[in-house]
Computed example of a mutant assay.
Amino acid sequence: MKCFNKKYWKTFILLMFACLYGLMSTHFSMALPYQPSASVVIMSGPSDDVDDSVDSSLVEWTVNPEKDSAGERFLSFYLADNQQLICRLFFTGSGNRIIWNNTTRVPHAIAQQDILIVPGANVPCDLLPVAQMLDSNKDAVIYEVRRQAGGQTFVDRVQVESMEISPKDAVQKGWLPGDAQSFGRLVMIQAVNLRTNALLVKQLWAPGDDWWIYEETPTRQSWRVR
């Protein structure tokens, strides 16, 4: 875990990000969302809305694409410092599912066919319906996900919507480094809890990429740096 003054850690991440996309721009090819061909490295820190008293250490994550003996593909999320496995995401025809390495404390997940959101988790493992939402004119989609708790059935209503973002606006908001004006079309996809109108997660995508550029939850900001 890398420790930086909160004032400077975002600058550090954006510099790493600029190096990454300077290399990737010469090797661009169309890819499927959340299906990287090689390991992805993510740097996470507290969101701007989190109190300064909260630990502002950066957390580095490694996401590895893997397959089991039956050929089923999944993503493994590791803490990069010690390669501790935190969870695995599986993609199946019946929907996505998450398996936690530590089963003594399993966070609640909102999961359906093409979304998987773990509210409050510090792991950047949320999945959104990217392929269908990259059209900036796409209407918002509402998901109703039932869950059981204490013998009762609850319904989580989640609205997913997309909006086109200019590279200039993304730079001003701190989602891209200042020299990223060469970016083309960018789309922000976000999920909101309709009961509370609170943000669950939002991800900034460049169409054709296999992973988001930037992700934000109420407590965490994350950037792909490799």
Rank of each mutant, 00 (worst) to 15 (best):
P65M: 13
A121H: 05
F91N: 04
V130A: 08
A80Y: 00
F74R: 01
N101K: 13
F90K: 04
L58H: 03
V141F: 06
V130C: 09
E66C: 11
Q84R: 15
E72W: 04
A80N: 15
N137G: 06
T104F: 09
Y143L: 00
G120N: 10
L75N: 07
I110H: 01
N101I: 05
F77K: 03
L89C: 00
D81H: 10
D81S: 15
D52W: 05
A131E: 15
W100H: 12
V141R: 13
A111Y: 04
D68T: 07
L134A: 01
N137A: 06
W100Q: 09
P107N: 04
D55Y: 08
I98M: 14
L128H: 12
K138F: 04
T103M: 10
D52S: 07
S69A: 12
G95E: 09
V106R: 12
D81M: 11
W100C: 09
L79E: 15
S69H: 10
V130L: 03
Q132L: 10
W61N: 02
W61H: 02
D52G: 08
L58D: 05
S136Y: 06
H108D: 09
V63N: 04
C87Q: 12
D68V: 07
Y78M: 12
V141K: 15
D126W: 05
A111V: 15
Y143P: 06
Q83C: 09
V123F: 00
H108P: 12
T103W: 01
P65S: 11
L127M: 05
N102W: 06
D55T: 05
L128S: 07
D135C: 03
D55F: 02
V130S: 05
G95W: 04
H108F: 14
A109E: 02
N82A: 08
Q113C: 05
S69V: 03
R73T: 12
Y143H: 08
P119Y: 02
L75G: 08
D81A: 15
I142F: 00
G71D: 12
N96K: 12
P119G: 02
L116P: 01
N102P: 05
I117R: 06
S57T: 01
I142N: 12
Q132M: 14
T92H: 13
P119I: 04
R97M: 10
Q113T: 08
A80F: 03
A121S: 12
K67R: 13
Y78T: 11
S69E: 13
D139K: 14
N102Q: 10
E60V: 14
F77G: 06
L116Y: 01
Y143Q: 04
G120E: 14
N64W: 08
L85P: 07
W61E: 05
K138C: 08
P119W: 00
A131K: 14
V54P: 03
R88N: 01
L128V: 01
L75Y: 02
L75I: 06
L116V: 03
L127A: 00
V130H: 05
N101R: 06
N96D: 12
T92F: 08
S53M: 11
Q132A: 15
V106W: 07
H108W: 08
K67V: 14
T104G: 04
L127Y: 00
T103Q: 11
I86V: 14
F91E: 06
W61S: 07
A111W: 02
D81R: 14
V141E: 12
E60W: 03
S94E: 15
I86W: 03
A111D: 02
C125R: 01
S57H: 04
K138G: 07
G71N: 02
P107R: 03
C87F: 00
I98A: 05
R97N: 13
P65T: 12
D135A: 01
V59I: 03
